[in-house]
């Protein structure tokens, strides 16, 4: 019986070996070798050059994750409190942009944020620039939105927000109503019920939401190139450059990827330790 069941897991094991473990091994091998595949630590020795890119990547990813949480949590909460009809519509609305290709979505944001893009045209049309110029005596023709770090963060928030909303929503919607009633019964007003019961019990959803936004944000590459205009290079761009770009050096690229992966794993580990108690409680 037991051996039969483990037989069922075989395709999964093969899949994991082929597409998860093998690539990681390849990355590790590349990271510790030279172009001639001689062992070396040189790839890591030069890492100091990229510290600023590391810092920027993690900074922007953390900011984007926090914004996603601030927008996503209330939205998920409201969704979970509404009726099933509203929930269905809201879920579809949240998923809808994800049916459009990622690059296409990001290009659309370029069109919106350009100096002569949709948003600036709109501001112009409603006379916002004239108003500002007349008040401050300035000579503004557009807001510079594209090619800023803000645009990069916006792109990340826009693309990854659903990954924050959905896990939080699914945890809150499954909360036992009688727990909320019990809290009320014991004297908690609605703020108290939220603070003492709903929020702590939705921590597992927050944790997985944060993971699902933070990890792709930190390694994103197209967003920063398109919306950041290449002036704010991030880790994803740096790695891409080593594999596909002019700087062609897959060994250095692998080393950077490996370092990034280790930092992300440490981040996740710390966070999961932090939320361990709650996670267990909900599983049981």
């Amino acid at each position: 019986m037991k051996s039969k069941r483990s037989l069922l897991a075989l395709p999964y094991v093969v899949w994991m070996a082929l597409f998860v473990i093998a690539p990681i091994i390849v990355v590790v091998i590349y990271a510790f070798t030279t172009a001639a595949f001689d062992p070396t630590m040189a790839n890591f020795a030069g890492m100091g050059t990229y510290v600023s890119i590391f810092i920027r990547s993690f900074q922007l990813a953390i900011i984007a994750t926090l914004i996603c949480l601030l927008i996503g949590y209330p939205l998920a909460y409201v969704m979970a409190k509404e009726g099933p009809g509203f929930q269905r519509v809201a879920t579809v609305l949240i998923m809808l942009p994800m049916w459009v290709n990622f690059l296409l979505r990001t290009y659309s944001w370029m069109a919106i944020l350009e100096n002569n893009g949709l948003l600036n045209q709109l501001f112009d049309a409603i006379g916002l620039f004239d108003l500002i110029n007349s008040i401050f005596g300035t000579d503004i023709e557009y807001f510079r939105m594209i090619r800023t770090q803000g645009a990069v963060v916006l792109g990340m928030v826009y693309n990854y927000l659903p990954f924050m909303i959905l896990p939080i929503y699914s945890v809150i919607v499954k909360l036992d109503r009688s727990l909320l009633e019990a809290a009320q019964d014991l004297g908690a007003n609605s703020a108290g019920v939220f603070r003492k019961v709903i929020f702590p019990l939705s921590l597992p959803g927050i944790l997985s939401g944060v993971t699902m936004v933070f990890v792709p944000s930190v390694s994103t590459f197209a967003i920063s190139r398109l919306l950041g205009g290449g002036t704010h290079m991030m880790l994803g761009d740096l790695i891409e450059l080593q594999f596909l770009g002019g700087a062609y050096n897959p060994h250095l690229g692998s080393a950077i990827a490996l370092v990034m992966m280790i930092i992300v794993i440490i981040c996740m580990w710390v966070m999961n330790r932090f939320g361990e108690g709650e996670e267990q409680a909900v599983v049981l």
Partner: peptide
């Protein structure tokens, strides 16, 4: 105060 049918203890 109420004792609920399935106790409704706070799991956290």
């Amino acid at each position: 105060n109420t004792v609920f049918q399935k106790y409704a203890l706070f799991p956290h």
